[in-house]
Design a protein around this nucleic acid. Structure first.
Lengths: 119, 119
DNA sequence: AAGCTATAAGCGAAAATGCGCATATAAGCT
DNA sequence: AGCTTATATGCGCATTTTCGCTTATAGCTT
């Protein structure tokens, strides 16, 4: 769960999506990412790290360069959850109408839904 | 793009994933969500709103209740991007080795990669 | 009408996030 | 060795997010 949240968090940033999009085309060093997207070195490096930590990227060092690329294996790990949740939703496992009666006063354990002890 | 970021942002929170998971089973009112997940009313309401704003949920009012459920249509909207990006990644459009030579001094436009004017 | 109930929203505090600046580290070049 | 370059990271600040407390709103119930 925590992993999944982390993955989504990594995807919920425009810069990182742009980076991901760039890397979908080809492997890049921090340097290229920063040039291609016209962002600072710090920003490129930090966001690449974030994507890496989330398991989206693979890192290969070559001399001075840190070469990042999409990590197909990493993707495979979290993907099932994501796709599964989405597929279920799309299939629309018939939304069952609830017997809302069980929420009424009589059946409530504590102060019922109303957690607020109104004055 | 902004929409996609928003969608991912909505998914990058444990509470919201739990809510989504609950709603995948059945339509629920704020009340039920808050009981099922043992969270405050404010928290349930706010996070449901977030998911709703991101286009994941459908809202149906019935008397006092706000009944939320997965919005299959909404899902369909952003899904293509998501699935597409992921699919591309998994297919692994052959990572092309770059001619890193183009990064070398001679070809650089400005101060090259090195944006930092070192002392 | 009076009171209760489910939900939303304003406000403020705490926590998380993003990022620039400066610096550290490591590797290549001369 | 000394300089240059690519990348990572500590620090601090600004912005955003989260969430509880409180209150407003609207729809039941009696």
């Amino acid at each position: 769960m925590r992993e999944l949240v982390k993955a989504f968090k990594a995807l919920s940033d425009e810069t990182r999506l742009r980076i991901l999009n760039l890397l979908l085309e080809r492997e890049c060093c921090v340097c290229e990412v920063m040039q291609a997207l016209d962002i600072s070195q710090t920003r490129a490096s930090r966001n690449l790290s974030a994507l890496y930590d989330a398991g989206f990227l693979k890192l290969r060092k070559d001399g001075l360069w840190s070469l990042y690329s999409i990590d197909q294996e990493g993707m495979k790990e979290y993907l099932p959850y994501l796709v599964d949740a989405v597929r279920k939703a799309l299939e629309g496992n018939e939304v069952v109408a609830l017997d809302r009666g069980r929420l009424r006063k009589a059946e409530r354990v504590g102060p019922g839904c109303g957690q607020q002890a109104m004055k």
